[in-house]
Design a protein around this nucleic acid. Structure first.
Lengths: 202, 202
DNA sequence: TAATTTCCATAGTGATTGCTACAGAAACTC
DNA sequence: GAGTTTCTGTAGCAATCACTATGGAAATTA
């Protein structure tokens, strides 16, 4: 393993032989491709270029690694929530979420689909806690959009007859569903047109 | 195990000690709740009320059991495809699919979500063949709807400017997505309103 | 240069995985 | 009632699972 470039004020002891960020990125991609439970520690260590003791020392355990991989994927949950709150309109926020999903689901250098949408939808009893955490993140993003829609109804940007819950739910159903369509082989062009079709409901 | 009621012209040998249909139903529910890979043979045998040798004798192996469970769930794929083809309009077929999904995803006596949508979206390399089979079924249903939409465009029931692929894709994205929303806790009322919202695109 | 700290690779751990060998049980047939 | 056929339960199989004990390596510090 090649040593990483030294840093100022280095602590004593043997330095890591691997790039933690690169290892995390590799783990993220494997979880994105296969899902949490279908990805073994053996596959993770191989993709990350580390041995099991190094993985456990650096990341804690498989679940902690997964949580960190999800956060790495999102680029910070708060940034996404702020993006929804700060959009000019709820409609623009929804459109942006749909377009981002369509594009993110069909990267040339990344697995198809969305890690948040697909890596743990159902699970064994043993992984229920992890599943619930990811479900809570999904709900949180949807809730933020719903609140933004409700706000736009209040300030007149949207019709008073708009069903905020159903409208936000529809956007998130499409986002979730496009992830599976991408994994089933759908291309970016198709997903972008689906996103535009979905926006016709506004 | 209590013996099942005898049947006419019974073959020689010891009769099964379990109800094959009931066992299949129990297996279907477990796959529906947890997904294919997260469900172990130990859990299956417990839910089905049989021992491993009996499971293997009656169903072949875990994958064969899963395939049979999926077919049991669909009530026959051909019936669904015929239902799309025979609907009065493509719009009615789409609406029916969405409503059926919303209702099926939120049964009182069944796991939340949809077995076809959620039991294997991503997978390990070892289960890729099973995943592809299920993906092919999903694509087949979507293709049948798309062809029905194209037919309605041709015969004037739908506007010539309708994008058949995007419209069918949108319906299936919502169907897939509602399954996840149901597993994340969304209720039937919400899903039905999402389905109605989705129909506003027609 | 010896002591200390941190990391690494090897070689496991106990538990679980999908699946089966085999002896016995339960039924039918002659 | 003995032989045949089919099914059952027990007790495994080899492989894999998430994770770790331990001795040695690589670095810094005094």
């Amino acid at each position: 393993m090649k040593p990483v470039p030294t840093r100022v004020a280095r602590k004593p002891g043997r330095p890591l032989s691997f790039d933690r960020e690169a290892a995390l990125d590799a783990a993220m991609r494997l979880f994105w491709e296969q899902g949490f439970e279908a990805t073994s520690v053996a596959e993770l260590t191989q993709a990350m270029g580390v041995t099991p003791p190094s993985l456990y020392a650096a990341f804690g355990d498989k679940r902690s690694l997964f949580r960190e991989a999800v956060d790495h994927y999102l680029g910070g949950l708060e940034a996404i929530l702020e993006s929804i709150r700060n959009a000019a309109t709820a409609r623009e926020a929804a459109h942006r979420l749909l377009i981002s999903a369509a594009v993110g689901d069909t990267g040339e250098d990344t697995p198809p689909g969305c890690l948040l949408a697909s890596s743990i939808v159902s699970s064994s009893a043993g992984a229920a806690a992890v599943r619930e955490e990811i479900a809570a993140i999904r709900r949180q993003i949807e809730t933020t959009l719903r609140e933004r829609i409700a706000s736009d109804i209040t300030n007149g940007k949207l019709s008073a007859s708009t069903d905020a819950e159903a409208t936000a739910g529809h956007v998130f159903a499409v986002i979730q569903g496009m992830s599976t369509l991408a994994k089933d082989g759908a291309g970016r062009d198709k997903l972008l047109r689906i996103a535009e079709t979905a926006m016709r409901c506004w």
